[in-house]
Amino acid sequence: MRLLCFLLTFSLFSCYETTRDCENYKTGKFYSEVYVNDVLYKSTFKRTKDLQIETYNNKIDSSKLRWINDCEVVFKTINPKNRAEKKDIHLKILTTTDSSYTFEYSYVGETKKQKGVAYKAKK
């Protein structure tokens, strides 16, 4: 009976598998949505292997990319205008679908993380 309960429990948990096909999101055109304190922030960006150009509130920001692995990247602002922009940002892709990915990000070395979703831009 214990074996049956174990197998049933194991089969229920093994059916839930998170998809992480991060390679599809290393380059391309995207838009993202992030909630911070119940406020929605949207941006668009184009990403190459080692560069990301982002537009937010009609302002363009460019960052150099350093991929740690297929699902984690560090952003370094190319021309920081203040102290906050000098801090590197660590982004980790948590899950992927065929058209989007869920991510978490924070300043490097900080424990407070934010989450968001990025979508492939329609061509």
Rank of each mutant, 00 (worst) to 15 (best):
K26W: 15
I89S: 02
F45S: 05
L40V: 08
T95M: 05
F13V: 01
S99V: 11
D98S: 10
L94N: 07
I53R: 14
R83S: 06
K64A: 07
V39M: 06
S43C: 09
T102K: 07
I53A: 14
D61N: 09
Q114L: 09
I60N: 05
K120I: 11
W67H: 01
T44D: 12
L40C: 04
R66Q: 08
W67S: 01
C15A: 08
A121G: 01
N37K: 09
Y105Q: 06
S11D: 04
L65P: 02
Y56E: 04
Y31R: 12
M1S: 14
G28N: 12
T48R: 15
F13K: 03
S100W: 08
Y16W: 06
V73L: 09
K81A: 04
T48L: 14
F103D: 01
T102N: 03
L51K: 15
N37Q: 04
Y105N: 04
S99H: 10
E85P: 01
T19E: 09
K29F: 08
C15I: 02
S11Y: 02
V74R: 09
V74W: 10
I68K: 10
K86M: 10
K26Y: 14
Y35V: 07
Y16N: 04
H90D: 03
S11E: 07
D61S: 09
S106H: 13
N37A: 03
F75P: 02
I68W: 09
K49L: 14
F45N: 03
L65F: 13
Y105C: 03
T77M: 13
D50N: 14
T111H: 15
V73C: 04
K87M: 12
I53N: 11
L94I: 15
V117L: 04
F45C: 05
D38S: 12
N79D: 12
T44E: 14
K115S: 08
N37W: 00
D50E: 15
L4A: 11
E54K: 14
G116V: 10
L51S: 08
D98I: 05
K92D: 00
G116N: 06
H90S: 08
K26R: 15
V108N: 05
K81S: 02
S100I: 02
T95W: 00
L65Q: 06
F103E: 01
T95K: 06
Y41M: 03
S62V: 13
N24K: 15
N37M: 02
T77A: 07
K123I: 04
Y31T: 06
K123Y: 11
K122H: 08
N24E: 08
I78N: 09
H90I: 13
V117R: 12
N69P: 03
S32W: 10
D38P: 02
E54M: 15
E104D: 04
E23C: 03
E72P: 00
N82E: 07
K120R: 13
N58M: 07
A118H: 11
I93R: 00
K86Q: 11
L7R: 00
L94G: 00
L12W: 05
F10Y: 12
N79F: 12
V117S: 02
T48Q: 13
K92W: 03
